[in-house]
Amino acid sequence: MSLSEVLTANNKTLSTLNSLLATQPALVSALSSAQGITILAPSNDAFSKILSTSTGTALQNDPSLLTAVLQYHVLNGTVPSTAFTTTAQFIPTLLTNTSYSNVTGGQVVMGILSGKSVEVFSGLKEKSTVTTADIMFTGGVVHVIDTVLTVPPSVAVSAVDSSLTALAGALTQTNLVTTVDALKDVTVFAPSNNAFQAIGSATGSLTTDQLSSILEYHVIAGTVGYSSLLTSGLANESLPTVFGGEEVRVESTGRKVFVNSAQVVIADVIVANGVMHVIDNVLNPSNTTASPVPTATQQAVAFAGVSSASNVPFTSGISATTTAPSASTMTAAAFGGMPSGAVGMAALFGAGAAVVVGF
């Protein structure tokens, strides 16, 4: 059947999607003639969660925004349910609009097989589960999903929504928000609040230039290092950072991944311009040889002579605004695994950030 025939035949489940597509004739025409695509189609129940909200109303009144969101639900390539495995795959979508994505080849979703279910993760680690798989049409395949995808927000917004308020505050204090958000194809190693608190005695005496150097040492530009790459192609490699090309070293030992002496504790927070991994230590550009002890339960801080502070630094005026899954704690043993649980409406829409939306 054609795409139009498939959508009509499944109108009982997909009538809301059909109604939204009816306002997008150019996109429908492109999809109808496309070959080798996969459409992740939110069910009526998925839409009902948000369309009654003020944000949902705004979305319906913004055709360009709706186009971008719909494009994010279309994968490049025919991906049947049997193609998903217990190894995470990062699949490009049709979302290439630079107002929403700055990733070469199109923004991605992460797909993985969990038990017998196919799960798809989008911005802020929002999880969507395939409820009806492998509805074939002439141009590819449709999978019905139970939750709309979240278009990944910027690094700065993702930091706030992931409860990385110290990082968000430090980026704000150094005026690096715009700079980092504007980079293309990035990997950001994002220290947790506990990581910043562990060097708290030193943070108050850092100059703006010193703090900027530290933050820049956590950003790789030009390489999007999803977890599948960190454990294979980039494992045991050194990567240049935006801090003058100074390198960090990635090491993979089984299901643990380290960056210098910091351990990745939450992987694959997809952001507008790449990916962000939460780490348990702040990296030190003056201590580039810091290395991990894989058997240790807690890695030593990379700054000499520091002590922990009672309060999390850089958080004045910064507060977490969501209960996004990306804020969940995940142990290194679960590297590559996904936290589960409900996500608040604010997380779905990025707490007011214009580019963080679902359908």
Score class of each variant (00 low, 15 high):
P240W: 06
I266R: 14
N193F: 10
F196C: 09
K184H: 09
G233V: 12
A272S: 15
L206F: 13
P191W: 08
P240H: 07
V269R: 03
S213Y: 02
V219Q: 04
S232Q: 11
S192R: 03
K256H: 07
P191S: 12
S201N: 07
V224M: 10
A272P: 01
V271G: 01
L183V: 13
A267F: 00
A198L: 11
S205C: 12
F196H: 02
F189N: 01
V188I: 13
E251F: 05
I199W: 02
F258G: 06
V269N: 01
I270V: 15
S232M: 12
Q197S: 09
Q197F: 11
T187W: 03
A182S: 14
G245R: 09
V224F: 01
T208A: 11
V219R: 00
I270N: 03
I199A: 04
D268F: 10
A182F: 10
I220Q: 02
E251Q: 12
I214C: 06
T223S: 05
S201W: 10
V269S: 08
Q197N: 09
V259M: 11
L211D: 12
S192V: 09
D185V: 07
K256N: 12
F243M: 04
V265K: 04
T208C: 10
G200F: 08
I270D: 06
T179C: 10
A198W: 01
L229P: 04
G245H: 15
G245D: 15
Y217R: 13
V259L: 13
T241Y: 00
V269M: 02
K256M: 15
V186K: 02
V264L: 05
K256A: 11
G254N: 12
P191E: 01
E247A: 10
L215C: 14
T203E: 07
